[in-house]
């Protein structure tokens, strides 16, 4: 935890240079540090909480871990809004100074008050295999890769730049919309089991994954199509993307459920790299495509590719196992 916080302070410090010194390579390096810091913090926060509540009831553990992870989207969303607002109010450099100072204080509190053996992530392991022996798990991981790429291909670069440059939105409004999207996504994910029928005792399978992917694919396609007509383009874009967020959360939550159920069914362990990195890889691909497609062909191209990626997800889902209506049995 301490290393992660310190790395983020360094990353913010690197960005305090005057704008003429902020070359692409320099900012890439600072962002790389920030990415490592994020992952270190996430892992150490999770493992520290596991360690802290081992003696207590398991139910307590789940509630605390759920609180920690469930609030992640809300805080990240609040951060989006804060970022846009800080840029308008105090400018980039001052924002870096303010955030670095806040984190430095948190870091000091950690140094003083946190037990030294806590919040440290364990040493690096050798991983056993990249792909699972269960082909269902591999296929589902590939579905997940395309699913996350379908979001980030418009979300990461294209949408915020479009909102600011083409629609002329204020930066705080852009940050605000991104915030609402990510917070809403987190909230829908939390209630997704009720919507897919899991809570009512209906067990979702590969067929549900395919059926839920279809309306998700329709959303960006319809937005892209109607953006041509100039008719209420802003309203359709905003409403359509919120609808996308709603459906995306359900799809993502379905995948999380299915992966565990397939691991049970096939007696396969889940220590496979591909499953864990699938969504991160999808994000990486989506981010690059978002910048490139938007620059060359514009927002509509990003939305069409998003729809295409979800069609690929749906097509891959056809081959996923169907369990019927009974719970998959272990062994």
């Amino acid at each position: 935890m301490n290393i992660g916080l310190a790395l983020q302070v360094v990353a913010l410090g690197m960005l305090m240079l005057p704008s003429s010194a902020l070359t692409v390579a320099w900012v890439m390096a600072a962002q790389g540090l920030s990415g490592i810091a994020k992952d270190l913090n996430k892992m150490s926060a999770k493992s520290a909480i596991k360690f802290l509540v081992t003696d207590n009831a398991q139910g307590t553990l789940f509630r605390w871990v759920a609180l920690l992870t469930g609030s992640k989207n809300a805080l990240k969303g609040a951060g989006f809004f804060l970022g846009g607002t800080l840029l308008v109010l105090v400018g980039f450099r001052t924002a870096m100074v303010v955030m670095a100072a806040a984190l430095a204080i948190v870091w000091l509190i950690n140094l003083i008050a946190l037990q030294s053996d806590l919040g440290k992530s364990a040493s690096k392991p050798k991983f056993r295999q990249v792909f699972s022996k269960s082909s269902a798990i591999n296929r589902l991981s590939l579905c997940r890769l395309f699913l996350f790429a379908s979001r980030d291909v418009w979300f990461v670069i294209a949408l915020p730049v479009y909102l600011a440059a083409t629609l002329g939105w204020e930066f705080s409004k852009v940050g605000g919309f991104m915030a609402i999207w990510i917070i809403g996504y987190g909230a829908v994910q939390a209630i997704a089991p009720y919507l897919t029928g899991l809570r009512a005792g209906r067990v979702p399978d590969g067929r549900d994954a395919m059926l839920w992917a279809l309306p998700l694919a329709a959303a960006p396609a319809l937005i892209a199509y109607t953006l041509n007509s100039q008719f209420e383009a802003e309203l359709i874009l905003v409403g359509g993307l919120l609808l996308f967020g709603f459906l995306f959360a359900i799809n993502s939550s379905l995948h999380s459920y299915l992966i565990v159920s397939y691991a049970d069914r096939d007696g396969a362990s889940l220590d496979v790299g591909f499953y864990y990195m699938a969504n991160a890889m999808g994000r990486l691909i989506g981010t690059l495509l978002s910048g490139w497609l938007y620059q060359v062909w514009g927002l509509q191209a990003c939305l069409w590719i998003s729809a295409l990626f979800i069609v690929v997800t749906a097509a891959l889902s056809i081959s996923l196992p169907r369990s019927g209506s009974t719970l998959p049995t272990t062994q």
């Binding site: 992660g4 983020q8 990240k76 951060g79 989006f80 970022g83 980039f92």
Partner: peptide, 11 residues
Amino acid sequence: FTLTDGALRML
């Protein structure tokens, strides 16, 4: 940390 992570992305 997560708050600054999100803010930094937008900034």
